[in-house]
Design a protein around this nucleic acid. Structure first.
Length: 635
DNA sequence: CTTAGGG
DNA sequence: CCCTAAG
């Protein structure tokens, strides 16, 4: 009689507030300096914020009522239980309005935000890509679960740490521009995107280069902006703690009659925030009078250049855009510092199924649970350049192309699970027969249970706004074993962020499992944000190594060739070996003047032809021989 | 996951 | 370099 309808939500994730800037340079990685502008708010804060919001607004309105579905009976027991929470009517109404104003479940969403204050800059000298990543991680580690920690304890600890001090990280002088963040960026509760701030500073010896391109995104669909400040979140610490320390038993209610699971899809990628890096010629800079030398650790040799727009950018991009924005120069300097601004993180997609009669509070808790589970597994940072993971941690930023202005535009960071199996789908006791949507949907059905927590990515700004947000789950990062950080680079338009947010929670009618399974939550649009790997021409020495390996191993054994000649080159794959060989053969055949790129010694090309001829002939023989062999055998 | 090829 | 069909 009491027909309970279940609601399934695909939770794309919370929008995590902007991350601090990650400057990097290539030397003296230890002379790292961080400037934390008060009130840091990182991914974890987000979690905290979520928790805060969830707990704070625990209320008794049922999803049913909120969603306006009048076809269901409300479970008495639940109502009873929730009566106690009626006092929080305010919150309830708020939730109500929130949901209602959106007209439909489709509009349900959760997002977190913070203010512009939550920015911090870090700058360190140029080192390797690894150092870049390390620094990055360093910058947020206080708020994230560390690689080895065991979820909760560490999580709580981190939160506490984060909140117990305004400056979790070494504080240096506050960069004027950043410090004066009296204005805060408003973070929409949902469907909004934080004004994109893109800035790129290049510190050089005397000039102030500012790089700042503020691509204002169209904040379409923005409504009810809401600003959550760090302060506001602080008081909620105990609440979160409480949540985290819940025992399984305590948690039960949260999962009762609902379940959630993570979904991972190779092609999915969610992004949201973009980071733009720009470089301007000092001469073409326009000084808005707000240049701040403090931004670039003036204490060091590094000097700032123009930062006139930084401040404005940080505050919502109200600053005048630099007239020189169109002028880019490929700077080549030894002391080239790269500054990156990380807009935000996005928590990976979650899939939630919950009873229609569940309360909003329960829904919130459920989501919190899911988010917690993700973070509980530990996170690490990945660096993406043009959609490709930068796996070689030993590569310098320069080598990795991270210092290249053009590439910076395609630079991204992401958070990904440190370990697999960090989370597992939760199945509602109430609906034991139901499967996690993940299992029902083909693409998601592959690694449901044992799937690692979703990946959180940080994206940079990108020119064209993607239509849909996607989440990218690295298949495996064995290559990253050496590095605490992994990379992946993705371009994501701000618009996408907005889209993502608005879709944070996508209700999926659970009329029937079958029906659900037939309606994939996301169309696999893999190509959307996947960027190609950066081009890395083979050096002569590499060619030599390749030739040598092929001479020995022959063609057709690229895996072995790779292992033998490029075992240490994480960025070279066996396919690359094969491709390179292919081009080498081609190169060897064409006239020298037709060749491009770094000239390969003729001697090597000769060997290429020789080896190619030898192995080709050998292969041909092998293909013809068998019959002969058989014939011989028969005879 | 590897190969082999076309794009 | 990418993408994929095949094995």
């Amino acid at each position: 009689m009491v027909f309970k309808k279940r609601l399934e939500y695909s939770f794309n994730g919370y929008h995590v507030p902007a991350m601090p800037q990650i400057p990097k340079s290539a030397k003296r990685k230890r002379s790292v300096r961080r400037k934390v502008v008060d009130g840091q708010m990182c991914a974890f804060d987000l979690l905290a914020a979520v928790a805060g919001k969830i707990l704070e607004r625990e209320n008794s309105s049922t999803l049913h009522s909120i969603l306006g579905n009048s076809n269901q009976n409300v479970k008495q027991g639940q109502l009873e239980e929730e009566k106690q929470l009626d006092e929080k009517k305010l919150c309830q109404d708020e939730a109500f309005d929130q949901v209602r104003s959106n007209g439909s479940k489709e509009a349900l969403g959760y997002s977190l935000g913070t203010t512009a204050k939550n920015c911090c800059t870090e700058s360190y000298s140029p080192g390797s890509a690894e150092s870049c990543e390390a620094e990055f991680m360093d910058g947020i580690k206080t708020r994230f679960v560390s690689e080895q920690h065991e979820a909760e304890a560490a999580v709580v600890k981190n939160i506490q740490h984060s909140w117990s001090s305004d400056n979790p990280v070494e504080l240096d002088a506050k960069p004027p521009a950043l410090a004066s963040s009296d204005s805060s960026i408003e973070v929409p509760l949902h469907g909004h995107h934080i004004p994109r701030i893109s800035s790129f500073l290049i510190c050089r010896d005397d000039t102030e280069l500012i790089v700042d391109r503020d691509d204002d995104e169209n904040s379409s669909g923005c409504t009810h902006p809401r600003t959550i400040t760090s302060k506001a979140l602080k008081p909620q610490y105990h609440k979160i703690r409480k949540l985290f320390s819940k025992t399984d038993l305590d948690m039960k209610p949260a999962f009762h009659s609902l379940k959630f699971c993570y979904t991972r899809r190779r092609t999915q990628r969610y992004s949201f925030k973009r980071k733009k890096v720009f470089e301007h010629r000092s001469m073409s800079l326009s000084d808005g009078g707000t240049s701040s030398k403090g931004l670039c650790n003036s204490s060091e040799k590094e000097i700032n250049y123009k930062t006139n727009n930084l401040h404005a950018a940080l505050h919502g991009g109200n600053g005048t855009s630099s007239p020189a924005s169109g002028q880019m120069s490929s700077y080549k300097s030894e002391n080239f510092h790269v500054k990156l601004s990380i807009k935000s993180f996005n928590v990976p997609e979650l899939f939630i199924e919950i009873s229609e009669t569940a309360t909003v509070g329960l829904l919130k808790r459920t989501i919190m649970e899911a988010a917690t589970a993700i973070l509980g597994g530990g996170l690490r940072v990945g660096v993406l350049l043009q959609g490709k993971k930068v796996r070689d941690d030993n590569k310098t930023l320069l080598q990795a192309g991270i210092s290249n202005v053009d590439k910076l535009d395609n630079l991204g960071f992401m958070l990904e699970p440190k370990s697999a199996g960090a989370s597992s789908p939760v199945t509602s006791p109430e609906y034991p027969h139901t499967h996690c949507p993940c299992d029902a949907i083909e693409p998601l059905a592959r690694h449901p249970a044992a799937s690692p927590a979703p990946v959180t990515e940080i994206f940079n700004a990108s020119p064209e706004p993607p239509v849909t947000s996607a989440l990218h789950f690295p298949e495996s990062d064995h290559d990253s074993v050496h590095s605490p950080v992994d990379t992946k680079l993705v371009n994501k338009p701000a618009a996408a962020a907005a889209t993502s947010n608005s879709r944070a929670l996508v209700p999926v009618p659970a009329m029937s499992i079958d029906a659900v399974s037939m309606v994939p939550l996301h169309k696999p649009r893999r190509s959307e944000f996947v960027q190609r790997r950066i081009r890395r021409p083979f050096s002569v020495s590499e060619v030599e190594a390749l030739v040598e390996a092929v001479e020995k191993l022959g063609t057709g054994r690229w895996r072995d060739v790779k292992l033998q000649a490029f075992d240490n080159a994480k960025h070279r794959t066996y396919v690359d070996m094969k491709d390179k060989w292919k081009t080498l053969v081609h190169t060897a055949k064409i006239s020298p003047r037709q060749r491009r790129g770094e000239p390969v010694p003729q001697e090597l090309l000769d060997r290429v032809l020789a080896a190619h001829g030898y192995w080709s002939q050998r292969q041909a023989k092998l293909q013809v021989k068998p019959p002969l062999a058989d014939a011989c055998m028969l005879v």
